[in-house]
């Protein structure tokens, strides 16, 4: 198990380095940063000054290691636009997005797994069809539209919950539902197909031949195996939610990482963009790593590999 974890960590680490290089390169290759920072009305001398101020005249490799050295010490420099360090901005915004993502994922899991199990057990009945319909609607509906519908119903008409902001936990309820509903269908379907496959397997037949209760057969023998791929999917979904919470965050005016990233991109605030990209990527990698470890705990065959 330790060897397994070590190996996975090694992989995760090399992926993180690759991502940092790619994100660094992309921004620098997308045009002359000094010009875009200086703005269209600036003179050549101003551009030159900016180039030197920001260290953009140095060789690319030097710039990269300079930035990386800062990054490992969690120093991403200062924002060009906001009056703050990049780290200050991120430490303010990240918890909001993490809370939102975790809530949404919890919500999605709590609904998706039982629904998937029931749909599989009641395959081809109206319950199964209802579950699939919910899933299709979830996958087809644009998330901003669903978010707006939630606001209209629960914030405007019923006035149960606030429509925007991030002052209290109530502010997170609607965004979490909106984001979670987006992640739920894929997990539900995967649980369902997984359960159907496992329920047809030889070892379920063996379990039944031992005269175990149906609940033991389903929850002990089937679900444990069916849920393994769902764990990996959940980690990926959470990664998507961190990156993709931009839409939800702007609809609900949540001051999260997604919104910060969006603001930074539109304002050429490239230290912020790089930091946001890197942090989301690192979280994504960490989640994948975590999913691998959980998978190994669930599936003894994976531990040896």
């Amino acid at each position: 198990m330790l060897v397994f974890i070590f190996r996975r960590l090694l992989v995760a680490f090399s992926v993180a380095i690759t991502v940092s290089v790619v994100s660094f390169m992309l921004l620098h290759l997308s045009g002359d940063l000094a010009i875009s920072i200086a703005g269209p009305e600036s003179t050549a001398a101003q551009v030159e000054q900016i180039r030197i101020d920001f260290g953009l005249d140095k060789p690319m490799v030097y710039q990269y290691f300079d930035w990386l050295w800062g990054a490992v010490q969690l120093d991403f420099g200062r924002s060009y636009y906001f009056q703050d360090t990049v780290m200050g901005l991120i430490s303010e915004r990240l918890p909001v997005t993490l809370t939102l993502g975790a809530l949404a994922l919890a919500l999605a899991t709590v609904i998706a797994i039982p629904l998937g199990v029931i749909a599989a057990i009641k395959q081809d009945t109206w319950i199964d069809r209802l579950a699939l319909t919910i899933a299709v609607i979830g996958q087809a509906m644009p998330s901003f539209w669903f978010a707006l519908t939630l606001i209209v119903i629960f914030a405007v008409n019923l006035q149960w919950l606030p429509a925007g902001g991030n002052e209290s936990w109530q502010h997170f309820v609607l965004p979490a539902i909106a984001l979670g509903y987006y992640a739920m269908p894929a997990m539900m379907r995967l649980t369902r197909t997984g359960m159907l496959e496992v329920l047809n397997s030889d070892y379920i037949r063996t379990a039944r031949s031992k005269g175990l209760n149906e609940s033991t057969v389903i929850f002990k023998h089937a679900l444990r195996n069916a849920v393994i791929p769902v764990v990996a999917l959940a980690a990926v979904e959470l990664g998507f939610m961190l990156g993709g919470s931009v839409v939800i965050e702007s609809v609900f005016s949540l001051k999260g990482l997604g919104q910060l990233g969006w603001d930074a991109i539109t304002r050429n605030d490239y230290p912020v963009v790089q930091a946001v990209v890197l942090i989301i990527a690192v979280f994504y990698i960490l989640l994948t790593f975590l999913a691998d470890v959980i998978n190994a705990m669930l599936d003894p065959r994976l531990r040896v590999r």
Partner: peptide, 10 residues
């Protein structure tokens, strides 16, 4: 089928 008749997770 001895290869698949036991639950791999237990």
């Amino acid at each position: 089928e001895p290869m698949t008749s036991l639950n791999p997770s237990y």
